[in-house]
Design a protein around this nucleic acid. Sequence first.
DNA 1: TCCACCATGTAACTGGTTACATGATTAC
DNA 2: GTAATCATGTAACCAGTTACATGGTGGA
Lengths: 194, 194
Amino acid sequence: MKAPSTPLMGYAILGLIQQKPSSGYDLRKIFAETAMGNYSSSPGAIYPALERLEAKRLIRGEVTESMGLRRRKAYRLTARGEAELKQWLSRPIVPNDVMRGAGELMLRFAFMEQVLGSSVASDFLVQFSAALKAYIPALESCLLNNAPHRSLSARLALECGIRGYQSLQEWTQYAIRQYRKSQTNQTSRPAQSR
Amino acid sequence: MKAPSTPLMGYAILGLIQQKPSSGYDLRKIFAETAMGNYSSSPGAIYPALERLEAKRLIRGEVTESMGLRRRKAYRLTARGEAELKQWLSRPIVPNDVMRGAGELMLRFAFMEQVLGSSVASDFLVQFSAALKAYIPALESCLLNNAPHRSLSARLALECGIRGYQSLQEWTQYAIRQYRKSQTNQTSRPAQSR
DNA sequence: TCCACCATGTAACTGGTTACATGATTAC
DNA sequence: GTAATCATGTAACCAGTTACATGGTGGA
């Protein structure tokens, strides 16, 4: 009774390929050099991941050997792949998403506007903010309950986690304001891929 | 040319066991119910991890079958285990630690005071703060360089990462102040395990 | 007695890690 | 020609996941 779920890195690849058809090498560079560095850029991670996605018919690769260029296998999304990506991006936020660190939610949000449009991204922020609002008090009570702490450093580490979520919450408010600002300027359109 | 490194969860277990000898079940509860929930509480993760640590002679388990109690295998640190834990806690902070998310550094800090004393923990915070100060500008320039962003949501996601590190930096300052405050009240002692 | 929970494990699968292999192309 | 870099891959290993198995203990 388990969905044959694509791991997080698979979705990262789907999202990047949706933005721009890419080779394994392109993806390695992105993971190695940009802020997406939390995902592995090792060939032993990326090439097998591409093969798995291709086996599931979510992407398709074609070699571009034309005129003296280096051999290069560029992947692009299939219709199934785009559907899978949209389905992932459309999932509702569940408490577990927030508890396990917000990495997956942020990855989804980063791709969301291009794929589903700015109004969906804006709605997502509202959901996100609400989920954080519900979760933070639980952490704070955890801090108070454990009043007789083992050490100052242990308590501070816990406080650091709470601050992280508070900062995330502040970011959602900021981001919501940014979307409101942009909506007054231009109409919300479903983000056509050029 | 690779150290037979204990994975992060192994150190989490060593740290917890140092605080208080524990069984696999105890650890499961801690990982499931407290703020350490980012580590897996599944039996398939914990029991093999305990076996690995025992095989490396870092911990030793003994069954406590006394008087009608349920069978229970409590582990405690060996001398080697304590040495390994101290060695891990004493490692200098390298840029990579900060880039790959600060999870390992926070775990180390949480255990640090009990094992190595408050002055080491305090020094650690200073190092941590310096590492963050060096890293944040790189992220900010990444934001500026990618000025023609794909979408507002992608830019905001990047900003969220930066804010997270800034909040971490603010926390280090706060934590350093807390240590200064505590040092004026009581002398810094190497934290004897009772 | 039977159910809930305590407590420890095991097995198959999945996927990431390090490290190595291979060869083509470009710049010097 | 030779070094750097582009580009794709492979293999052995390691550890976490889900799911199941086993049995003791206490309370209804």
